[in-house]
Every structure is written in C-alpha cells, then in structure tokens.
C-alpha cells in the first residue's frame, strides 16, 4: 500500500514537473501557429529529403527538454506540411542527441560523449529513413 502511495506521489511530482513546460510549449506553439505564415516552414524546409532531414536532426540536437514537447512540435510541423522524414529525424535527435548536456555527459569520458552524440546524430537520420521506408512498405 505504501509503495502504491509512493508511486502515485512520484507520478504526481513527475507530471507537475512536466506540466509547466508542456503548457508553456502549447502556448508558444499556439502563438507561433497564429502569427507565422505557412511559407516560413516551407522556406526553412526545402522539400529536399536529405537536406530537410539534416535540418530536422540539427534542430532536435540543439533543442532540449521533455520528449513530450518534441512530439507536440513534431505533430504541429506535420500539420504545416513538413514531411515525415525530417520530422522523425527531429524527434529521434531530440531524445538521443544532447548538445546542451554534452559537458555533463563528459563525466563518462569526453571522447565517449562526443562520439556518442555524433553517432546518435547520424543514427537519427538513419532511424528516420528506415522508419519511413518500413512504413512505406507496410502501406503498400
């Protein structure tokens, strides 16, 4: 019983920690959606799969925060007509690459931290490509 209460307490704490960021992001996305024209997104993403994936993965690598934020941003990018490939690269790099956390990760060894982040960046694009490829096969 005590464990269940403790688990509930931790879950409430986790959600409470997450909510301000989530509400803030939703408010920001709401604002950005209202004031930015469609052309801004189509301007940033060039409709070139390789280049767009690089842009998506780079954005995800530098932005940081709860994964839920990336899902909301990714979903809204899709609504704006951005392709699944760059959005997937964005989602994966958000959670696997941490440029901001690199100094903290260096506790495990500077070389390890740098190589892990570089390979994770490359793998984010790879993961996106393979995922979209498999989804394409499944939809045939």
């Amino acid at each position: 019983m005590d464990n269940a209460v403790e688990a509930g307490r931790k879950a409430i704490k986790g959600l409470t920690n997450m909510l301000p960021v989530l509400i803030g992001v939703v408010l920001l996305v709401g604002f950005i959606k209202t004031v930015t024209p469609q052309s801004l997104y189509t301007g940033l993403f060039q409709q070139n799969q390789v280049l767009d994936s690089l842009i998506g993965a780079t954005l995800g690598s530098f932005l940081t925060g709860n994964a839920a934020t990336s899902y909301i941003l990714g979903g809204e990018l899709m609504d704006k007509g951005i392709g699944l490939l760059p959005v997937t690269a964005f989602l994966v790099s958000w959670v696997t690459v941490g440029v901001v956390q690199l100094p903290a990760e260096s506790i495990l060894g500077k070389k390890f931290a740098i190589i892990r982040n570089v390979t994770s960046f490359v793998l984010a694009i790879g993961a996106a490509a393979v995922t979209v490829f498999i989804l394409g096969l499944l939809s045939v």
Binding site: V26, L27, G30, I72, E76
Partner: peptide
C-alpha cells in the same frame, strides 16, 4: 493575436 493564439493553444491542449 493573443486571443487567437489562446484559442489555438486551447485546441492543442484539449487534443493532448
């Protein structure tokens, strides 16, 4: 702009 942004935000929040 703020009013429209709040409406859009409310819709996103209700979605999630």
């Amino acid at each position: 702009i703020v009013f429209n942004s709040l409406i859009t935000s409310k819709n996103i929040f209700l979605k999630i």
